[in-house]
Amino acid sequence: MSGWWCTGLRWPDGEPVLGWERGDGTGPGRVSVLAYGRELGFRAEGERHCTGARGNPCPVGAVVPVRSTGARCAECARLDRAHSVAADTIADDPRTYRVYLAWFGPGMVKVGITGEARGAARLREQGAVVFSWLGRGPLMAARRTEELLRSALGVPDRIPYARKRAARDALPCEAERAAEIEGLYRRAAALEGAGWPEALERLPFAAVDHAGVFGLAGAGPSARAVTGLVDGGVVAGRLVAAAGPDLHLETPDAGIVVLDTRLVTGWDLVGADPRAGVSVPVVAVGGGGVQDGLF
């Protein structure tokens, strides 16, 4: 493998950045800062391989399914999950966590937690169009609050990613977006004294809107979404928006195509003509999707 492996889309300091590492494991990694209006293109080569777990390479270099957003074999996925916050295996974690409410579209609001030191990066990684903090405190208090909202208010902790993606094309105005999440915040705050953990400090409501950060206002409706790469397949176009793990690319022959960058991890990638378009499998936005991740 002589090309580069993409490690996915990240959002440090509120801007989209692609991470890269050598497919053969040699040399330092690098990042590509993305800018809306910029053209980009790459071609996949060979097979898709497991990306390993917890910073360690897969011991067997397993081939993984092209449609999976995890890019890990079963054993590496188990090891990675066992050390994650979501697995609830680190009850004595001394760090401070925050509980948040995230809005992805009309009727699509979820509750979640993230490490306070990460700031709002987790919300941008999930593609949250609007969010507000709800509270802060120890991990177990944050977990109990998350469960309280699920049981008392029926607020989910996951939303299928295909639904999030489809909702971006028809967003209500900023005031309406903020009003919906504020309504949920008030219902959640009313639970204090009814099971709210004493160790969790409630934070004031403040809606943070990411539509501008994501570039959604001028992106236009998405026509298709990539379902997986293939050997020799090309993805190329002009970047018009980015949200969560997704890149929205304007292509010369297929309109705006959405690429979930979790699908490109584990592939050996080389550069391609930015005007080459898309020659990998796609599906109409809203007409299906790839296997969802922990979002």
Rank of each mutant, 00 (worst) to 15 (best):
G286T: 06
P28E: 14
L294P: 08
D80M: 11
Y100I: 09
E192L: 06
E201G: 01
L148A: 04
G193C: 01
G215P: 14
L216E: 09
V226F: 12
V66G: 05
M140K: 11
A91H: 08
L200K: 02
F131A: 01
G218Y: 11
D169Y: 01
E39R: 15
A77D: 09
F131D: 02
R22Q: 07
W103V: 06
A179K: 11
S132V: 09
A225I: 10
R224P: 00
E39Y: 06
V213N: 02
V234G: 12
L259Q: 13
A242M: 08
A102G: 13
E180C: 02
R186E: 07
R158A: 09
A162E: 11
V235F: 08
R143I: 10
C173L: 01
L139E: 13
I181A: 04
G244S: 09
G29C: 03
L79V: 13
R72I: 05
Y100C: 03
A82Q: 12
G183V: 10
W267L: 06
C6S: 15
T145I: 00
R43V: 15
H210Q: 14
T51L: 11
S68L: 03
R158S: 04
R224W: 11
A91P: 04
A91D: 12
S2C: 02
D209S: 08
V129R: 14
G277Q: 13
T114H: 11
A276C: 07
G228C: 10
A128F: 05
A166S: 14
G14C: 06
S32N: 05
V60T: 15
P245Q: 04
A219D: 03
S2P: 07
A121W: 02
A44R: 05
P59M: 07
A276W: 01
L229E: 04
A53Y: 11
P172N: 03
R122Y: 13
R136S: 15
A166G: 04
A86C: 00
S222E: 13
A219R: 15
G237E: 09
Q126H: 14
A71V: 01
A53V: 12
G27S: 09
V99C: 08
A206S: 13
V278D: 02
